[in-house]
Simulated scan of single mutants.
Amino acid sequence: MSKGIFITATGTDVGKTYVTALLVKKLRDAGVNAGYYKAALSGAEEQPDGSWLPGDAAFVAQTAGIPAKPEELVSYIYKTAVSPHLAALREGNPVEMSKIVRDYQASLATYDYVTMEGSGGIICPIRWDEQHILLEDIIKELGLGTLVISSAALGSINACVLTVYYLQQHGIPVRGIILNNYDADDFMQADNKRMIEAISGVPVVAAVKPNAQELDIDVQFLQSLFK
C-alpha cells in the first residue's frame, strides 16, 4: 500500500522545495519508488514557447530524477506569484478539492511513497471565494501527517514552535522537523535546534547544511515517517 507525507514550512523562502527535492532524491537513490505531488503552484515561469513551467515541480523532478513532466506533478498552476487563492481570483480556475483528491490518488497509484509539498506556510489560503479552502483542509482530506521545514536562523524558535502548535491544535500529526541551512558550529543555531525540540516536543529528524546535495537521514527511518 502506498504511503504519503505532507511538507509544510514556517513561511515562504525557507527552502521547502529544496529540502523536498533532497528528501525525494534520498528515497529514489536508495531504489525506492518515490514521487512528488503539489496541489497548487503560483508564480509559474514563462518559457520561450509561451508555455508556463511550474518551477518548484521542475526543480524537484530534476533533482530527484522523477521521470515525469513537471506539469504532471501539479494540479493547479498559476502565473501570478501570490497565494493560490489570490492568483485564482485574478486568473480563474479556482482549486477544487475533488480534483486534488483524484490527482493525489493517481500519484499514490504510481508511486509507493508520495511526498506532497504545500504552498507557502501552513496558514495559506488555497481558495477564498464562495468556498474556503486552506492547506489544513487539504491535509485533513488526504489523511496526511506532516514534516515542518524551518530555518535555523534568528527567530526560528518562535516560527517553528507556532507552526507545530497550529498543526497539532488542528488535529494534524507532526512527524518531525527538518532544519534548513543549519550550521552546527553556530552556537545560536545549535541552541535553536535544542530549544525547538524542547518546547515543541517534536524531534528535529534532519538538519540540512548550506548547499547540501544530500539529506543526512537514514532511509529506513525516513520511510517510517510516511503513513
Score class of each variant (00 low, 15 high):
Ala159Thr: 15
Lys99Asn: 06
Gly4Glu: 07
Ile66Trp: 03
Pro210His: 09
Glu130Arg: 12
Asp137Phe: 11
Leu41Phe: 05
Met195Ile: 08
Tyr166Gln: 01
Val204Trp: 04
Gln223Met: 09
Tyr78Arg: 04
Trp128Cys: 08
Leu225Thr: 01
Asn158Leu: 10
Ala153Pro: 00
Glu46Arg: 14
Pro84Thr: 12
Val24His: 03
His132Phe: 11
Glu117Ser: 00
Leu142Arg: 04
Leu135Ala: 04
Asn180Glu: 12
Leu142Ala: 07
Thr8Tyr: 02
Ser200Gly: 01
Thr146Ala: 09
Glu136Gly: 03
Arg90Val: 02
Val19Trp: 01
Glu45Ala: 07
Lys209Phe: 11
Lys209Ser: 13
Arg175Lys: 14
Thr12Arg: 05
Pro70Ile: 08
Gln62Asp: 15
Pro70Glu: 09
Tyr165Trp: 01
Cys160Asp: 03
Ile122Tyr: 02
Ser51Val: 15
Asn158Arg: 12
Arg175Val: 03
Ser119Gly: 13
Ala61Arg: 07
Gly171Ser: 11
Asp191Lys: 07
Cys124Tyr: 02
Lys193Tyr: 13
Lys3Asn: 12
Ala190Tyr: 11
Ala34Trp: 04
Ala87Lys: 08
Asn192Tyr: 00
Val208Pro: 05
Asp191Leu: 02
Lys227Glu: 02
Ala39Trp: 03
Lys16Ala: 03
Ala68Cys: 13
Asp49Trp: 09
Leu162Gln: 03
Met188Glu: 05
Thr163Arg: 07
Gly118Asn: 00
Glu130Asp: 14
Asn180Ile: 06
Leu154Ser: 11
Gly65Trp: 14
Gly145Val: 03
Gly118Ser: 03
Asp112Asn: 04
Gly43Pro: 00
Val60Met: 00
Thr17Leu: 09
Leu142His: 06
Leu179Phe: 08
Asn93Phe: 08
Gly176His: 01
Ile196Ala: 06
Glu91Arg: 01
Phe221Pro: 00
Ala109Val: 06
Pro67Ser: 13
Val164His: 02
Ile199Asp: 03
Asp129Ala: 04
Leu23His: 01
Glu130Gly: 12
Asp112Gln: 06
Arg194Trp: 05
Gly35Thr: 14
Leu162Pro: 05
Asp185Glu: 13
Asp56Glu: 07
Phe226Ser: 09
Ser150Asn: 09
Gly55Cys: 05
Val95Tyr: 11
Gln223Pro: 00
Ala184Ile: 15
Pro125His: 08
Pro173Ser: 03
Leu147Asn: 14
Lys227Ile: 08
Phe226Thr: 13
Leu222Thr: 15
Arg102Gln: 14
Ile7Phe: 01
Trp52Met: 09
Lys26Gly: 13
Tyr166Cys: 07
Thr163Phe: 10
Thr8Gly: 12
Ala206Met: 04
Gly155Asp: 06
His132Cys: 10
Gly118Trp: 05
Asn211His: 14
Ile196Asn: 04
Pro70Lys: 01
Tyr165Pro: 00
Leu144Ser: 07
Leu162Arg: 03
Val74Lys: 00
Val95Trp: 06
Pro125Met: 15
Tyr182Met: 01
Cys124Pro: 06
Gln213Cys: 09
Tyr37Leu: 03
Val32Tyr: 09
Asp183Phe: 11
Pro203Gly: 07
Gly145Met: 04
Gly4Asn: 10
Gln131His: 11
